[in-house]
Measured scan of single mutants.
Amino acid sequence: MTEYKLVVVGAGGVGKSALTIQLIQNHFVDEYDPTIEDSYRKQVVIDGETCLLDILDTAGQEEYSAMRDQYMRTGEGFLCVFAINNTKSFEDIHHYREQIKRVKDSEDVPMVLVGNKCDLPSRTVDTKQAQDLARSYGIPFIETSAKTRQGVDDAFYTLVREIRKHKEKMSKDGKKKKKKSKTKCVIM
């Protein structure tokens, strides 16, 4: 069974824990209790493949930012979460993405942009803004509501699919490099 290491990042209060708990335990946590770091595991079937999701729910508070490099190193894919009623959390996505790329030393890291709290009427981040940002990053965008469960499975499952595509691409690139290195030079 394939294991996928997913990391949920975003500013404090955007609903990272609520999304994760909704996926794992099928219930909505409405009281806000700032996370330092929590880890969850769940076995699911995605596109006919049974897999184990190892999900790291991270601290959004700035005082825990020193811990970010460590979990970013171990993560295979990242859910970059903002709240649709919090423009600052949307603007912060850029910083999370840049930090992930720096730590992973790669421009090509599996990510999904997630606009959470889409059940709320007080939207300050337009869907088109988020779609445009995701398009500019070359990553999928999904709106979710941890409260109603809308888009929750889709967000995590899409990230797994992005990781699969990335692994497939990397193995193809690896095979191309191996083929090239088999060419021999004969000096007579």
Rank of each mutant, 00 (worst) to 15 (best):
V14W: 02
I46P: 04
G10E: 01
Q61E: 15
T50M: 05
L19A: 14
Y64L: 15
K5E: 09
Y4C: 12
V29E: 11
E31R: 07
V45Y: 05
D38S: 03
I55Y: 02
E63C: 05
I24S: 14
T2M: 09
Q61A: 14
Y64D: 14
H27C: 12
L23E: 15
V45L: 09
E63R: 02
V14F: 10
V8R: 01
N26A: 13
I21Y: 14
G13L: 14
G48F: 05
L23N: 15
C51M: 08
T2G: 13
G10I: 00
S39D: 07
H27R: 14
Y40S: 04
H27V: 10
I24L: 13
L6Q: 00
Y4T: 14
E49D: 11
Y32D: 00
H27Y: 15
E3T: 09
L19C: 13
D33S: 11
V44I: 09
H27Q: 13
D47R: 06
V8P: 00
V9Q: 05
E37A: 02
D38K: 00
H27S: 11
G13S: 11
R41Q: 09
V7N: 12
G12I: 04
V8Y: 04
N26S: 13
T50W: 03
Y40D: 05
V29M: 13
G48K: 12
S39M: 11
D47C: 04
L56H: 06
L19F: 10
A59I: 15
E62K: 08
G12T: 07
S39W: 05
L19I: 12
V7A: 09
C51K: 05
H27F: 12
E49G: 11
T58P: 06
V9N: 03
Y32H: 12
A18W: 01
R41T: 09
T20M: 10
V44M: 05
L52Q: 10
D57M: 01
L53E: 08
Y32I: 03
E3A: 08
L56D: 08
K5V: 03
E63T: 11
E62F: 09
L53D: 02
G15P: 00
V14M: 13
D38V: 04
I36D: 01
T50Q: 04
Q22V: 02
I36C: 03
G13A: 12
D54L: 01
T35W: 00
F28E: 00
G15Y: 00
T20I: 11
Y32A: 03
T50N: 06
Q61D: 15
D47M: 04
K5Y: 02
L52E: 06
T50K: 05
S17A: 00
V44K: 03
G12M: 06
S39R: 01
T58F: 15
S17R: 01
S17D: 01
L52M: 12
T20K: 06
Q22P: 02
T35Q: 02
A59Y: 15
N26M: 14
A11H: 08
G12N: 09
R41W: 05
N26G: 09
T50G: 10
V45E: 06
N26T: 07
E31W: 09
V7M: 08
A18H: 03
D54G: 03
V7W: 13
R41N: 08
S39E: 08
D30H: 11
I55L: 07
T20A: 14
G15I: 00
A59K: 02
G12A: 06
Y32K: 03
E37V: 04
Y64M: 15
I21S: 14
S39F: 08
V9I: 14
G13W: 11
Y4K: 08
I46T: 07
E49M: 09
V29S: 11
F28D: 01
L56N: 04
R41F: 06
D57R: 00
Q22M: 06
S39P: 01
F28W: 09
N26E: 06
P34K: 01
D47W: 03
K42I: 10
E37F: 00
P34Y: 04
L56R: 03
G10T: 00
L23F: 14
E3M: 11
V45D: 07
Y64P: 12
G13H: 11
E37N: 00
R41P: 13
L6D: 01
D33M: 15
D47K: 06
Q61C: 15
R41H: 08
D57N: 02
H27L: 13
D30S: 12
D57T: 03
Q43G: 04
S17W: 00
L23P: 02
D30A: 10
G48W: 05
E37W: 01
L6F: 13
S17V: 01
L6S: 01
L6V: 12
I36M: 11
L19T: 14
D47I: 02
L23H: 15
E63L: 04
L6A: 05
Y64I: 15
C51S: 10
T58L: 03
A11Q: 09
T50A: 13
E31G: 06
Y64E: 15
L56E: 03
L53K: 04
A11L: 14
E31Y: 10
E31M: 07
T35S: 03
V14S: 12
E49W: 06
G10Y: 00
D54N: 07
T50E: 04
L53A: 08
V29C: 13
S39V: 09
L52Y: 11
Q25E: 10
L23I: 07
A11P: 14
V45S: 08
E49K: 12
I55S: 08
L6P: 04
H27G: 12
L56K: 03
E63A: 04
V29N: 12
